[in-house]
Write a protein that binds this DNA or RNA. Structure first.
Length: 184
DNA sequence: GCGACAG
DNA sequence: ATCTTGTCGC
């Protein structure tokens, strides 16, 4: 799942693409164009994108086994980021994959793809800093709903065999961008 | 009080 | 998130 914004700032498009984790083929997809429901405030990010993402999810003809969100889950100041929010509201398993940290500290991650180090915050392990490509900036993986951190890590690595980000967010990114273009 | 701060 | 040229590397 991913969201794109128009230059005017008052238009957005949310997209959901469903992939077969084994073949990485897109088996279903849906988009929703609308307006941000809330201003961007770090920590309250879910309130901004959730409505549009839920609208897109409703247009799916299949039920995903896992929601891969563009943002954090447990790795949040209140331990309830976008991925947790989406998971609880839909009842579906969910995980968060962030490109930059919001909270936490971590030790350097080994250069090799597949390496990771725990993301610590306030004495808790709130996620993992995972290397999805050799020598490329790692991503921040955290649990959202109904899934273990081990499983979340495995899914992310399975979904990102070649590029830094999971194929799910890459395909969703393209979809919401073109939807935005077609919405003028 | 000050700085940091997912997308 | 979005606005943007060139550049390093496989």
């Amino acid at each position: 799942m991913d969201v794109a914004y128009g230059t005017s700032g008052d238009l957005l498009a949310a997209a959901v693409t469903v992939l077969d984790v084994r073949t990485l083929a897109v088996v279903d997809s849906a988009v929703s164009v609308g307006r941000p429901a809330f201003g961007y405030v770090p920590g309250l990010f879910a309130f901004r994108e959730l409505p549009a993402l839920l609208a897109a999810l409703d247009r799916l003809t299949t039920r995903p086994d896992l929601l891969v969100c563009d943002g954090h889950g447990l790795a949040h100041p209140r331990r309830f980021g976008l991925a947790c929010h989406l998971g609880v509201v839909t009842g579906l398993p969910s995980i968060g994959v962030g490109k930059t940290p919001l909270v936490g500290e971590w030790d350097p991650v080994q250069w090799r793809r597949g390496s990771w180090s725990p993301l610590w915050d306030g004495g808790d392990v709130v996620g993992r800093v995972v290397r999805t490509r050799d020598g490329v900036k790692p991503v921040f993986v955290s649990v959202g709903h109904r899934m273990s951190l081990d499983n979340a890590t495995a899914q992310v690595l399975a979904l990102a065999p070649r590029y830094r980000l999971p194929e799910t967010t890459r395909t969703a990114d393209r979809l919401c961008r073109e939807a935005l273009a077609g919405a003028g």
